[in-house]
Design a protein around this nucleic acid. Structure first.
Lengths: 210, 210
DNA sequence: TAGTCTTACGCCACTCAGTGGCATATACCT
DNA sequence: AGGTATATGCCACTGAGTGGCGTAAGACTA
């Protein structure tokens, strides 16, 4: 169920990582079982044996703790984007590849399952959905800032980078949703495959007729 | 500052419309002046001389009241979408036109200003931004449902309609953002113009190279 | 115009998320 | 072992949002 704790760190740091992970796991468990609104923070904190005050030193909100796995992916994405050299291909194609790279850096044991739990929770909890979307929005803006820093992008009113990023996110959401409704367990490769499909559908969505 | 009240309605309904509008206007005023978090619902309710209990009979949340103007547009959009006959053109092109039509039905006195106030508030208030995005998401899903009802859309795994809708929303956000940073007042036509620019940028965003 | 019915509203008490302050404990360092 | 830094716990508080119930005000009917 867990991401292993790197043992090279000082005891204090290891403890912190462990409580953090315990909060995430327990939260996903309880939220899934009793619903997001049906679980109080006091209950969650009691289960992990941590004070509510401490909870808020680890996470910004009740929604935040359940979003952590997804958050990890996009944090990795932004990191990769910072150390990235464009080749001749399409911006969109390269963003897609960067996302694949980031995806490859996620723990492949249980990570996708946690992401799917998050997604299913968001599907039935408006405030979680809202929080997740807001996080995507922040990521988009951060990515644009990075693009602007690394390559001039002379015209600040050029809307294309922003639109390209939004398409990336949209495709990601599509892929996740497809995977959510897929019966049986899923792993990182399944997500990758769904992502490829979603990316492939982008050009057609612009020219599609009814 | 106000949307006029249709005088054909019974007194009770007119009163309701008036308190609703008063809540919206006062909220935008206070939020803009003192910040979203710097304004309590008790203050707002006191200013409009309404109990907090009543506030929640009109709106679902504190964020909701400030989003009302934008909400009106997308509600109109969905209405138009329901009574819509496809011609030979691109799905995306027709969605764009539907949005323009809906836009034409908004009150052109002050409406855009309210939308811009909302947008500026969202820019500096995470919870408002989140709420707004969540609303867009709901709209997207509703639109897809409508599309599916009206034309078979045989394959439920065809991602293109969803992606097209997301592009429409992305372009709308781009247009709004551009308008937000434009100095001086803005009217409905300005928004229309920005929208055209944003829509025009979509194909290029797929093929753009860096 | 009176009488009744309906519906919106106000009030009150309550739950729960989130915050600030301060005392205490626990890991770190020398 | 002793001093320092930092994470945690406890307590009291604010503010959003809800449920229940009595009351007032608009809406139909005669």
């Amino acid at each position: 169920m867990n991401t292993e704790i790197p043992s090279g760190l000082p005891l204090r740091e290891r403890k912190k990582l462990r409580t953090r992970q315990a909060l995430i796991d327990t939260a996903l468990e309880r939220f899934t079982e009793s619903g997001f609104d049906g679980t109080t923070l006091d209950e969650l904190c009691a289960a992990v044996e941590v004070s509510k005050r401490t909870f808020f030193r680890y996470f910004d909100s009740k929604e935040d703790v359940a979003m952590a796995p997804t958050q990890d992916l996009w944090t990795a994405f932004l990191e990769d984007l910072r150390t990235w050299r464009p080749d001749g291909r399409t911006l969109l194609a390269q963003l897609q590849e960067t996302l694949f790279t980031a995806l490859g850096r996620m723990p492949d044991e249980g990570w996708v399952d946690r992401v799917l739990l998050t997604r299913r929770l968001a599907a039935r909890t408006p405030s979680m959905n809202a929080h997740g979307l807001q996080f995507c929005d922040r990521t988009t803006r951060a990515a644009i800032t990075i693009l602007k820093e690394r390559f001039g992008l002379a015209d600040p009113h050029d809307l294309r980078p922003r639109l390209a990023l939004d398409m990336l996110i949209a495709a990601f959401h599509c892929a996740l949703e497809e995977l959510t409704f897929q019966p049986g367990p899923a792993n990182r490769d399944d997500l990758t495959a769904r992502l490829r499909d979603a990316f492939a559908a982008i050009p057609g969505s612009v020219t599609m007729t009814l």
